[in-house]
Design a protein around this nucleic acid. Structure first.
Lengths: 155, 155
DNA sequence: GCCGGAAATGATATACCATATCATTATCGG
DNA sequence: CCGATAATGATATGGTATATCATTTCCGGC
């Protein structure tokens, strides 16, 4: 996706969320959207410099990412130490607990909502073990169909 | 748990897995078992020095951890960047895909097997999204009952 | 026993991820 | 316009992880 169209999507997202993003936060969100794959904070600093011809220190990137994730416009993939824009940033779906399918080969990520029935089962299992589920975010290591296909041929 | 008894448990684990552990690998496993909570590779290096009066470089710790995780005697908690001994290291249960309940407060971790019905549902959902589940390890952010209880009182 | 290759470990350097802290700038209601 | 608050900059530093080459240990065959 081109940065230009990502910027307008970011604008759209901020309106939808009824949040007025500063121009830098909007730019960072746009970079995340344009990336279409998880990127690290330091990568974002590089992308920012390249895309907007202005250098932003990583520390600031982290703060903007904090803001974006707190407002559900982006997510942090804890298992990858990378960030990704929320798939529902511009749409109306309220998106419950997120579930990420991460291709171990090409690192493509698909965000989905955790299936309601799975969620309930998980909660039950957790409760039985003497815990309370607080912040369910599933990160599942997978292969996307393309990579799985490619893998088979070399087996 | 005392280091001494952890050592014999580590020994037991290596016999069960039909793997002959080098003394250092066994020591690292024992440290993990004695810790009873997730520890980082660098922490392990410190613990090793304290427990065995010998300094082991972190690089070597990482390699031993690789070995232990490959042989299912330990796990890496990707969301924490820490390691933990496998709950089934010394027992006969074949333990399927692991699921970790992580208390966000006290960082206690409980390992369980992913419920079979949940596993199947997950696989279905993943497949529907065009992916193949390869390495399912769930890391669920929770509160343990103790911390949840303590939290309520201060609400 | 000892020789040679393979496996394990050591040593060193370096890259990457993340946060603490204080200074500066931008924003906005009164 | 002023002052408070939020946002960003600048700098330092700590934690996690890997790459690479050197050395030691282990072990089977002679």
């Amino acid at each position: 996706m081109l940065l230009q169209s990502a910027l307008s999507r970011a604008e759209q997202a901020s309106e939808r969320a009824e949040i007025s993003l500063t121009s830098k936060r909007k730019n960072v969100l746009a970079l995340l959207m344009a990336a279409e794959r998880p990127v690290s904070a330091y990568e974002l600093a590089d992308l920012y410099r390249e895309g907007f011809e202005q250098s932003v220190p990583p520390m600031s990137i982290y703060r903007m990412l904090d803001f974006l994730t707190e407002n559900n416009l982006a997510h942090k993939l804890n298992s990858e130490n990378k960030f990704i824009s929320c798939a529902h940033a511009t749409c109306e779906h309220s998106h419950g607990a997120p579930q990420f399918l991460i291709c171990e080969q090409c690192h493509k990520v698909k965000e989905a909502a955790i299936d309601k029935s799975i969620f309930i089962e998980l909660e039950k299992a957790v409760e039985k073990a003497g815990f309370v589920l607080t912040n369910p975010q599933l990160e599942l290591k997978c292969l996307c169909n393309e990579c799985a296909q490619a893998g088979k041929q070399t087996d």
